[in-house]
Nucleic acid binder design. Structure first.
Length: 880
DNA sequence: TCTTTGCATGGGT
DNA sequence: AACCCATGCAAAG
């Protein structure tokens, strides 16, 4: 039995070796956080990057680099960092990935902190020189500081500067030095040295620099997982997460730091961070109104850390793609961005700067007059603004003065976004912009969420992923150079700009002039703030809201009310949410319908083949349901079996083919992808082709966004589409009827209760909707001609059109906004208290509702008697 | 009278 | 409740 305490009796971690470990050497980092102890031979093999080649040649998981064809072992922990997953599939070795600048981290990997191998000694040695350089550099002006850390001497001449290079906030330094007491003193000293010299937080560490602090070394050449991690951490998520950075940095630390590593990997906030920030940002409060705070005295300010602390709206949303294309021979550090207010974009020429941003990224100023600040715009022009502040409530309000010419030259207006970045190694401030009218960048994560959704308006900001050509662009005056110049120096990229005033040593790359979307509703966020608590719960940053909304929209399709529950509908920022009084059931969305003999059925779509299968009405399907689970119809329990062609199905999905008149191909549903197809089909049903339907504006509902799949929004524009018959069982009609029923029933119940309390005598004694005592205009305000027309149609059993359907919904909503098909009556009541003086209106309203309800419900009940009293669509619907 | 400048205010976070 | 910041506004030029 071996003794665990005796290292001499341990064996090599490589199970194919098992040599005794006389002098254990560190290998890869294991999931436990410890390093694999290897024998000399295995360690050397590992450090040479040939471990898998040597020991795992027969293992599975070998793949070829898409570029060079080199075989990479993708199947084990040892070499997971030596390749990247390509967006289009396949993998690419890190060498090729570097060449092509596509450095998307392997997204599916576990927290990198668990696997980070440390650096080979040769890299460590190389980087140590940089640390010495840093240590010897002495105090530097803030904008020069970065160059010290990204000097060309620190990198291989063959390797382009990578966009993953990130600012290492000096807070990290302190963290490391204070929280990792066991770190070697040398490293500690270096960190401390550098800590005090990173004025304004402009310390910029290349990945190799960071890695240089790693004590252990065994990574293969430039294949560095930290590189990916850093990139991922800092940019791909559209925000710089200090925890990520901390993770990456700490991961390079010796084993002793593992605890921290794990903590960072788990996004556990670091107390140090807040402490630092608390110090840094308390400068203007209280006693520090006149003098300089720590910040102003040139104390370190960390970009990443600060960035993480910035309000989300100021965090630069530059994407990794943008960075990749921007970088060229320089590195752009996104600092912050700001949407131009009316004041900013006005003629006053003052751009109010977010305080924290100004203090973090701009030179410290002690006098209100401030100092000139040179900023380069996207054309390469240098502008000199006056960076100053106003004393304000014991604080400061930072402004850039004289920005009008620049703003105008960029053709910016209120709502557009200006971005501030810093080009390294020059340390030059650059000012980019995004026009509000163009789609913004989106991180890959959001793309998947939003890809199938049509979204717009202010919440739309992050909805669409920017295509490469859109990611970076030149301003309008640089048309023609929109994409190609981005990896070129500006001078080359745009010769026309060579005449522009330039800095002598200007060799910066393209500036981050993202033509990205801003929030079109400039200050609606500020103004439209009357939100219920529910909204507040959802109201995060705009782009997150969108994600959330879409997620909710999608999720809602998977939620069903529990049996025998009638869900209410509440609209939160234009998105309908069904409310259940009990936990919803998550199931597969289906189409509830009735077949031609009145039997209630469901149509469920196979997860795999997308064919629609008929299942019993009361079947509750799992969220992932496939034909194989179609136990009700064994003949159709295989995806290979054609979709059942029935009259009901054809009626439900009549127009999935361009030529609606042609007989439906039973498998044509397969042309549509997933359950989104169902919603599309509902639209197509109205007569448009899929393409058209996705692009044609839907019937507008003021509180709904394009992409909203609610009953109102999925209709074609008014006047278009076929008429709906009274007996129509299409999705829209079913939903309308069902929702209306629910609404009316609940409304009636509520009103009855209230009336019983307030107007016991008047109850049913007046029916003011037909009362001649009520001024007609008041009546008209509740029962307009359209409503009457609709009412008549319903009474007479006439067919009603899409317009009618719209009116069913919108007209009810038109009741002073108190009746909304998307609203929950009770909620409306709460939100719209009715004063007693409004008795007439109220009675009229009640009467009309009852009137409308009578017509509608009677009709609906009649139909339901034959069609079934319960219809649902995609789990969205109400049960009446 | 118009523009610029500096500060105050108050809604929003 | 404190702070931020968009904007109003009065004084100065």
């Amino acid at each position: 039995m071996m003794s665990f305490s005796s290292s001499s009796t341990r064996i090599c971690f490589n199970s194919l070796c098992n040599d005794a470990l006389e002098r254990p050497r560190k290998g890869w980092r294991r999931r436990t956080g410890e390093f694999a102890d290897l024998c000399d031979r295995c360690a050397s093999t590992y450090e040479e990057g040939k471990f898998c080649e040597t020991f795992h040649m027969n293992a599975s998981g070998w793949r070829c680099c898409e570029s060079c064809g080199k075989q990479i072992h993708c199947g084990c922990i040892v070499s997971f960092h030596t390749f990247v997953l390509l967006d289009a599939g396949g993998i690419e070795c890190m060498t090729c990935a570097r060449k092509s600048f596509i450095l998307t981290p392997n997204p599916a990997w576990p927290p990198p902190s668990l696997f980070l191998p440390a650096l080979p000694d040769r890299i460590k040695d190389l980087s140590a020189k940089n640390w010495d350089l840093i240590a010897e550099s002495g105090p530097v002006p803030w904008r020069q500081a970065p160059s010290l850390f990204s000097s060309s001497s620190a990198r291989s001449g063959l390797q382009p500067r990578m966009p993953f290079e990130v600012d290492l906030p000096n807070g990290i330094d302190r963290l490391i030095t204070t929280e990792c007491p066991s770190a070697p003193s040398l490293e500690k000293k270096k960190l401390e040295d550098s800590s005090g010299r990173s004025m304004n937080g402009s310390l910029k560490f290349r990945a190799s620099d960071i890695l240089a602090n790693g004590k252990e070394g065994n990574s293969g050449e430039q294949d560095n997982p930290v590189v990916n991690d850093l990139q991922k951490a800092s940019f791909s998520a559209n925000e710089v997460s200090m925890s990520h950075i901390g993770m990456a940095v700490s991961s390079a630390l010796p084993n002793e730091a593992n605890d921290h590593i794990k903590a960072f990997g788990s996004h556990v906030p670091r107390p140090m961070s807040s402490q630092l920030l608390g110090k840094q940002f308390s400068g203007h409060n209280g006693a520090d109104t006149s003098g300089e705070s720590q910040l102003h005295n040139g104390k370190p300010r960390g970009d990443g850390q600060l960035r993480n602390q910035l309000l989300p709206r100021y965090r630069p949303r530059i994407t990794d793609q943008e960075l990749q294309q921007i970088s060229g021979n320089s590195v752009i550090t996104p600092l912050f961005e700001k949407m131009l207010s009316a004041s900013d974009a006005g003629r006053i020429g003052r751009l109010v700067l977010p305080k924290k941003c100004a203090e973090a990224y701009f030179p410290s100023i002690s006098q209100p007059e401030g100092s000139p600040l040179k900023v380069q715009d996207s054309k390469g022009n240098d502008w000199i603004f006056q960076f100053r502040f106003w004393p304000n409530n014991n604080s400061r309000m930072y402004v850039l003065e004289g920005v009008t010419p620049c703003i105008q030259s960029m053709q910016l207006q209120a709502g557009d976004i200006v971005t501030f970045s810093r080009i390294e190694p020059e340390g030059k401030l650059v000012m980019g912009f995004r026009k509000a009218s163009t789609p913004p960048p989106s991180d890959k994560g959001t793309e998947s969420v939003n890809a199938t959704s049509r979204v717009s308006t202010k919440e739309d900001v992050s909805a669409k992923k920017t295509k490469p050509g859109e990611v970076l662009s030149t301003p309008h005056h640089l048309k023609g150079n929109s994409l190609s110049p981005c990896n070129l120096p500006i001078d080359q990229a745009n010769p026309a700009d060579q005449a522009s005033p330039r800095l002598k040593d200007d060799k910066s790359g393209c500036v981050a002039t993202e033509v990205l979307g801003g929030k079109s509703s400039i200050r609606s966020r500020r103004k439209n703030s009357t939100l219920a608590s529910k909204v507040k719960r959802l109201k995060i940053e705009d782009e997150h809201v969108i994600e959330l909304k879409l997620t909710w929209e999608q999720a809602q399709g998977l939620l069903r009310p529990p049996p025998n529950y009638v869900p209410g509908v509440v609209v939160i920022e234009g998105v309908e949410f069904e409310e259940y009084e009990d936990a919803p059931i998550i199931g597969r969305p289906t189409i509830f319908a009735a077949n031609c003999v009145g039997e209630k059925i469901q149509w469920a779509q196979c997860e795999d083949c997308f064919k629609l299968r008929k299942v019993p009405f009361d079947a509750l399907l799992p969220s992932r349901w496939t034909c194989s689970e179609n136990s009700w119809d064994p003949e159709r329990s295989f995806c290979s079996v054609a979709q059942e062609l029935t009259a009901e199905l054809e009626y439900l999905l009549p127009a999935s083919k361009p030529a609606a008149s042609k007989k439906r191909d039973p498998d044509s549903v397969e042309d549509l992808e997933g359950l989104d197809a169902l919603a599309n089909l509902a639209i197509q049903e109205e007569g448009g082709s899929p393409q058209e339907s996705s692009q044609t504006p839907t019937t507008k509902h003021p509180r709904h966004r394009p992409g909203c799949s609610c009953v109102i929004c999925i209709q074609p524009p008014s006047g278009k589409g076929p008429k709906h018959k009274q007996t129509c069982t299409c999705t829209i009609c079913l939903m309308v009827k069902r929702r209306f029923q629910t609404l009316m029933l609940r409304r009636e119940k509520k009103q009855s209760e209230k009336e019983a309390e307030i107007f016991p005598q008047q109850k049913f004694q007046q029916h003011p909707i037909f009362s001649e005592n009520v001024p007609e205009e008041i009546i008209r305000s509740f029962t307009n001609v359209e409503n009457r027309s609709l009412d008549r149609k319903m009474m007479n059993g006439e067919d009603f059109s899409n317009d009618d359907v719209s009116r069913i919904t919108s007209s009810v909503s038109a009741f002073k906004g108190q009746i909304d098909l998307n609203s929950q009556p009770e909620r409306d009541d709460e939100l719209s208290p009715r004063p007693d003086s409004d008795v007439v209106k109220r009675i009229m309203e009640n009467a009309f509702e009852r009137d409308l309800r009578l017509h509608f419900c009677n009709r609906s009940r009649e139909r339901n008697n034959s069609e079934g009293d319960q219809t649902r669509f995609g789990g969205l619907g109400l049960e009446g």
